[in-house]
Design a protein around this nucleic acid. Structure first.
Lengths: 221, 221
DNA sequence: CTCGGGCTTAAAGAGATATTAAAAACTCTG
DNA sequence: CAGAGTTTTTAATATCTCTTTAAGCCCGAG
């Protein structure tokens, strides 16, 4: 079981990571919202432990982005004492539970187990389109049952497209998905990734919409 | 039959070890949770005698870690009188039985025999992948029926990989598996162990996933 | 037909991983 | 307790993969 911890306090973060590993989980730790975004694109986690009070971009916006693209991964908010409105906003935005800092670790793990258990009914998404399948929990992509290896950037590009089948995804959006919103790249990297994806997965999967971007999905009538 | 005793009280520990040897068992004795973790990775024991009230990290977390990775080794908790909640948590976390300190040795051995007998039905895992076999109870690895000798660190690295076939295991996770969570090593030790494993077991077993870690492929169906 | 966006390619630059070999730390044995 | 043999760590180098760049070609829209 893979968890994601989004927490800027290094001490607390380390402690939570240790605890998680002792509990038999594996856990990734990121310190800010942009990193969290990228991690969530890369993997399907069993649950996310999300500090709301992040420096810069708030944890809430990460949560909103997740729910905006129908990512059902359970989210447990970590909030500071007294921030009642944060909690309300969080639950409103689709968090599954919250715990107030400072907390007992035992309680934290109990809540994590609880949100995971409650989410068992939900399906962990395995994107598929035609003979292409993406298992996000293993980070494995296959075509006609044969495993295909993708680089990190190729994988992120593909996921960003598969998340909205039938919708045109702009180059800018893809750039965000690959590099985070602080996109500092020039040149035609996205075009190159698209080209690699087509080479590895076949020309039919990704259609280009001239002047707009790319689509995965049924040809529009 | 091999037992593991996790107990910080030196006197009691010695006494239990003596008793076990007289009873025809062999027994390893460790004094804290991290040591217990490592011992459990190294060997498959017939049973674990686990003191819950350890200094530092609780015995419960050891138990949870075991069950978290589906280690079916029977666990007999040693608890102090009156710690009812500990006992409940322990059984909850997957302990097989408990005994209250101070105890009669006769009763202890009766309970040990009992949990071992009850566990006979369970399967002691023998990992295998292709022509590679790992017998955890004997700590023996063989390739195509020929025994291969691995050093302690190589063995731990291999087990950490085999525990999640088909999943990418990060370098950090391997580091934890080899050194415990207080990983204080620099340099590329993990890379070296992987290299040795490939040399001894063949290049096909462990695949590297660039930027993520290593995978042992799913056993061919 | 022309223009601009899109595609393809190859190669340089980064970054990650593999491979060594030797030093340091253990272990075992006499 | 010393010395031989092993394991573990370090570190430097080599190799490989991924990423980015840039230049030229192709194609669609107007």
């Amino acid at each position: 079981m893979h968890l994601l911890l989004v927490e800027d306090d290094a001490m607390l973060g380390e402690a939570v990571c240790d605890g998680a590993r002792q509990g038999g989980w594996t856990i990734d730790h990121v310190c800010d919202a942009p990193a969290a975004r990228l991690a969530l694109i890369d993997h399907a986690y069993a649950a996310v432990l999300l500090d709301i009070g992040l420096p810069g971009e708030s944890g809430l916006s990460v949560l909103r982005a997740m729910r905006g693209r129908y990512d059902p991964t359970p989210v447990l908010m970590l909030t500071a004492r007294g921030q009642l409105s944060e909690r309300i906003h969080g639950l409103d935005a689709g968090a599954d539970d919250y715990i107030v800092k400072p907390f007992q670790f035992d309680e934290l793990w109990a809540r994590v187990r609880s949100v995971i258990r409650r989410s068992q009914g939900r399906v962990i998404p395995v994107f598929s389109h035609g003979d292409i399948e993406v298992d996000r929990s293993r980070r494995v992509v296959s075509k006609a049952g044969v495993e295909v290896t993708l680089s990190a950037h190729e994988y992120r590009t593909l996921l960003a497209l598969l998340e909205r089948p039938g919708h045109v995804v702009t180059r800018d959006h893809l750039q965000d998905a690959v590099y985070g919103s602080a996109s500092a790249v020039e040149s035609n990297t996205i075009a190159v990734f698209i080209h690699q994806l087509r080479r590895k997965l076949g020309d039919d999967l990704i259609r280009t919409v001239h002047g707009h971007g790319y689509v995965v999905g049924q040809p529009r009538p």
